[in-house]
Computed example of a mutant assay.
Amino acid sequence: MTDPTSTATAPAPEAPPDRGTQRRTSEVAVPLGVMAAVVVALVLVYAVGQRATDLVTQSIVTGLLLGGVYALVSVGLTLIFGVLGIVNFAQGAMLTMAMFLVYEMTTSGGLPVYVATLLAVPIMFLFGVVVQAALLNKLTLAGSHEGPLLVTLGLSLLIINVLLMIFGGRPLRVPGSVDGSVEVFGAVASYERLIAFGGALLVAVALLLLLRRTSFGMSIRAVSANAEGASLVGVDVRRIYALTFGIGAACVAVAGGLMAPFLSLTPTVGEQFTILAFVIVVLGGLGSVTGALLGGLVIGLVQTVGALYFPGTGSLILVFAVFVLVLFFRPQGILGAPQ
């Protein structure tokens, strides 16, 4: 029989684990694990891949430079999805639209390509704001999922066909402003691709700082987490939705201007980036800007290094194989929150 006057106390229950600490640890450990896996894979390619070392190095450098631009296209897409919950099927068409804006300003206006890119950014931002405010806000606020999909798909078709009517289907070229190349670890990288990579990283970092260090970024994150709750504390949800879609359009404007000097322009050129952007967004984690950046670099490397062994469309098959493999072990993506 237990003595009720006994002073012995039961052991204190263990404190529950700090979920915030666990999440921060995961946010660091998972990207490091992904990068370690990529490094190991590249070492194996060098060691037993039976390809010339200089050819592998060139593929790695090209893949990193290409992946940076992929990431910038995907950052706008993941931001729109994270805040509005919209899968923007017009992202590739908007990228094409930005490229043709730059083309017009460089050929008809005589502007340097990077000056034209700076001018295209506010134009595309305003275009995105108008599209969201005029076509999507009502559907988004009503909680419709099918409506925005159909609207963005229709917008994509409209943009492509208008560009076809104006410019035709013949491939066009944007005159470059910078010639020459530099040697990077024995590989050759053109200045235009280096500028594109550097510009993509700068925009991605600026976007992260905007989201994490400003009151406007806090409003965006609040709406992303709970639009109704954000509205109750005074956040103008309609305004945040419109500005977020505008920022997503501005991101593709930067990407389009940076890529225009080394791509052939056709009204459907952006469509080749649409599927890859979706793959990168899901791979990096839906709504994660950092995940989109990391996913873009990984996909760029897989595509270019994989092309050494699977030329043509074979490298895309490898991209989707890696995509499925990652999601098999981590369904939420590299930096996505567990569901």
Rank of each mutant, 00 (worst) to 15 (best):
A10V: 12
A10Y: 10
P17G: 11
T21I: 12
R24Y: 04
E27T: 03
L32C: 13
L32S: 14
G33I: 08
A37I: 06
V39T: 05
V39S: 03
G49C: 01
T53D: 15
L55H: 08
T57C: 05
G76Y: 04
V87C: 07
N88F: 10
N88G: 10
N88R: 10
F89S: 01
Q91K: 04
M94I: 06
L95E: 07
M97F: 15
V102W: 00
M105H: 04
G110T: 04
L111W: 05
P112A: 07
L119R: 12
V121D: 00
G128K: 10
V129C: 13
A134S: 09
K138A: 15
T140V: 15
S144N: 10
S144T: 05
I159M: 02
I159Q: 01
R170L: 13
V178D: 01
V178W: 04
Y191N: 05
A196P: 03
V205K: 08
L209A: 14
F216I: 12
S219R: 15
S219K: 12
V223A: 03
A242M: 13
I247K: 06
L265F: 00
P267W: 10
T268K: 11
V269N: 10
G270N: 00
T274L: 15
T274S: 09
I275N: 05
I280C: 07
V281T: 13
V281E: 11
L283F: 10
G285E: 02
G287D: 03
V289R: 01
T290N: 09
G291F: 01
P311T: 14
G314R: 03
L325G: 01
V326T: 10
R330H: 13
G336M: 08
